[in-house]
Design a protein around this nucleic acid. Structure first.
Lengths: 205, 205
DNA sequence: TATCGTTTTAAACGTTTGTTTAAAATTATT
DNA sequence: AATAATTTTAAACAAACGTTTAAAACGATA
């Protein structure tokens, strides 16, 4: 994966790629369109030629980014797999995504907090927190007596919290435990099993 | 608790109180010193008279805020209580703090992400993620064979994640589950037991 | 009452911000 | 080759930002 935009890309893609890198790194407000233009080696005015505004550019990038990862996660939750298998796959896939994109969680949170009312109603955003048929399946298993009577909402939030939160305090974890980048990655890989076992333990009778 | 600064406060406290409200609500960059001054009904220049800069004002507020809540949490972790009791108390106290201050977690994250290198080395910040004698105690219990062989670091991160993360996506939880403010509070109160039981289940032999 | 240090004020400072303009350069179409 | 449409450019726009200035108002001290 390239950090900077290559010269043979279209201008529009150069802008999007460079802007994404900067938005992830420094957030929306601390990233100026002048810095985007400089790093992408294009004129400032082109930013408003292709995208109408900075806000528009951001929304475009945000949608692309979510659209890239949510379908895979949603398809796991909506699949006809047994519950335990589903949980295992979801945890592994989600952590793999975040290992490739450690800043993603905080990025989404920053978007959410900048404009909560608008964002929570965005389709592309809702799909990120869409449980698919997960809750229904969960209730069914409870009714059948296969698993403990646990609130699916609490369970899903547990799962999300355990997977995503560590990435938002990555620097703290690394600093406190004197971890290198590689050690952190290994820690998160180990975490897949920790989380899966923990979650299944809470529902197993 | 007052949302706005009262007239009988000192100028310095009026600034700090108003600024805190705005920083929590809109973040550092989206809060202008002009808005702070307007809402606190003071002159802009007073901001630089009492605090030397906006950054300085922010640091002052941030330290006060952490200093208000971390001692209580640290004293629980450092107490001579048995492990299970400690976990229960910590979860309850932390959630109670965040119920009174729902924006606190995201606020801390935003500070961390704005200046990770500087912040992770701040004493007041480290104390927030200080485990006290918790890890030592944890290892002791493992060695004695009283609890399962679980990595204390993973465990502590589990605990932190389960407690704090839901507050960072409060709006999403409320929107998705059609919760009112009160329902959310109730949900988080119920969560105290959910988390405690979950954590203890993972270490109980 | 005069003098002192402290607090508050209005006004301006220089930068930076996102955005727009209008002309130039390039590419595509006929 | 001439024209039209698209893309890129340099320059400027107005607004907002954090910060500073220097004088006025205030309260305490002598």
């Amino acid at each position: 994966m390239f950090t900077f935009a290559a010269d043979n890309m279209t201008t529009e893609d150069k802008i999007k790629k460079t802007a994404l890198t900067l938005f992830l790194e420094k957030g929306f407000e601390r990233t100026s369109i002048r810095e985007i233009a400089r790093r992408a080696k294009i004129n400032i005015a082109l930013l408003n030629y292709y995208f109408r505004s900075k806000e528009n550019l951001f929304n475009s990038i945000f949608s692309s980014l979510l659209g890239k990862y949510t379908p895979e996660l949603n398809s796991i939750l909506s699949s006809p797999l047994p519950l335990e298998e589903k949980i295992k796959l979801y945890v592994e896939e989600y952590i793999d995504i975040l290992l490739k994109n450690p800043r993603l969680t905080y990025f989404v949170l920053s978007v959410l907090h900048r404009n909560p009312d608008k964002i929570t109603k965005m389709k592309i955003f809702q799909s990120l927190y869409n449980t698919g048929n997960f809750s229904t399946q969960f209730y069914d298993e409870v009714r059948k007596g296969n698993i403990k009577d646990v609130d699916p909402t609490q369970f899903f939030i547990n799962m999300l919290s355990l997977i995503t939160f560590p990435f938002t305090i990555k620097q703290v974890i690394m600093e406190k435990n004197k971890m290198s980048e590689d050690t952190f990655k290994q820690f998160m890989h180990e975490r897949k099993q920790v989380i899966t076992e923990m979650l299944i333990l809470t529902i197993k009778k």
